[in-house]
Amino acid sequence: MRVVFLLVPQVHLLDLAGPAQVFSTVRDLGLGYELHYVAEREDVPTAQGIPLRASANWPPLGVDDLVLVPGWRGHRFGTHGLLTGSTRARLAEHHRRGGTVASVCAGADALGQAGLLDGRRCTTHHDLQDHLAERYPAARVVRDVLYVVDDRVVTSAGIASGIDLALHLVATRHGPSVAAQVAREMVVYARRNGDAPQHSVMLRHRDHVSDVVHRVQDVIDGHFTERLPLRALAVAAGVSERTLTRAFGEATGLTPLRYQQLLRVERAEHLIGQGATVEAAAHAAGFEDARMLRRLRARLVGSPP
């Protein structure tokens, strides 16, 4: 998968570096990512004063590839970031052929110039939301959210929210476990949805800094369909069962067993949503029978931890 960053003069470093760090971490995990940096001119000044150098030549793009436009300095759209017709056409054509385009902060203006915001939900930094709505009246600007996804057009609020956007794209492509691993490597909270409660159990209960609990969650995440005695989890963490139970509860609000059950129920619900029978989904998720799944769904789904 290629991730192409389109750089505009006065680009904000964190708008670029946050998502770039996410995707480079995924690449380091061996998942076959290529990162490219392109611009209309090779020398790209940044808002923070560090000069960057990009390529004027775009790599070939396929439907699995992503083009991401980081934001740039400007109190209103139109002061910077005006793209040439050929660049706008590249963005529009990539999306038309089935590819994904994304933006951070003011980068939404680039997508607007390419006609990709018309009729779609989108967002940008809170200081620029009114300007985005004024400049692209056919767009449906969603205010005060981290990011918005609409038909392979992904826009984020800006600055650090670009990390959340990138983690969402990783979770969509590779699953929440990989996204959680990347978030842990980057020492950031893992968020999956920009405008709704987090739906992934793996991500929802990873917003802590307990290394002991993360190690146990790694074990449970990878083997939640199997029987996992508390003693074995404590050995994996290098602590006593009592210490593990206390630390796990403080970090997640759950017991290790409850966390495993939530993962099983979530997996079963996903399979049912894909057309599997309740019985087949129950067995695939690690339950002995469908009755146990039904009981846990009634007890756990929608209930407080």
Rank of each mutant, 00 (worst) to 15 (best):
A47W: 09
Q48K: 14
I50H: 10
I50L: 11
L52S: 08
A54P: 07
A54Q: 02
A54W: 04
A54F: 05
P59D: 00
P59R: 02
P59C: 00
P60M: 01
L61Q: 03
G62R: 14
G62L: 15
V63A: 11
V67I: 15
V67P: 04
V67L: 10
L68R: 01
V69S: 01
P70R: 15
P70W: 15
G71I: 02
G74I: 01
R76S: 12
G78W: 15
G78L: 13
G81Y: 08
L82D: 05
L83D: 11
T84E: 13
T84D: 11
T84W: 07
G85Q: 09
G85W: 09
S86K: 13
T87C: 06
R90L: 09
R90I: 03
A92T: 06
A92Q: 10
E93Q: 15
H94D: 08
R96L: 12
T100S: 13
V101E: 11
V101S: 10
V101P: 00
A102I: 01
S103V: 04
S103L: 05
C105E: 01
A106H: 00
D109Y: 15
A110M: 07
Q113M: 11
A114G: 03
L116W: 14
D118C: 10
G119F: 04
G119P: 05
R121G: 12
R121K: 11
R121D: 14
T123Y: 07
T124W: 14
H125A: 08
H125L: 11
H125V: 10
H126Q: 13
Q129F: 03
Q129M: 05
H131W: 15
L132I: 01
L132F: 02
A133Y: 05
A133H: 07
E134S: 14
E134C: 11
E134W: 09
E134Y: 12
R135M: 09
Y136F: 12
P137Y: 13
A138G: 12
A139Q: 05
A139F: 05
R143W: 11
D144L: 00
D144C: 01
D144T: 02
V145I: 02
V145H: 03
L146A: 11
V148M: 00
V148H: 05
D150K: 01
D151L: 07
R152P: 08
V153W: 13
T155E: 03
I159H: 06
I159C: 12
I159S: 11
A160N: 11
A160E: 07
L165G: 01
L167A: 04
H168S: 06
V170K: 04
V170H: 02
V170E: 02
A171F: 06
A171E: 10
A171P: 12
T172S: 11
T172A: 15
R173W: 08
R173T: 15
R173C: 07
H174C: 06
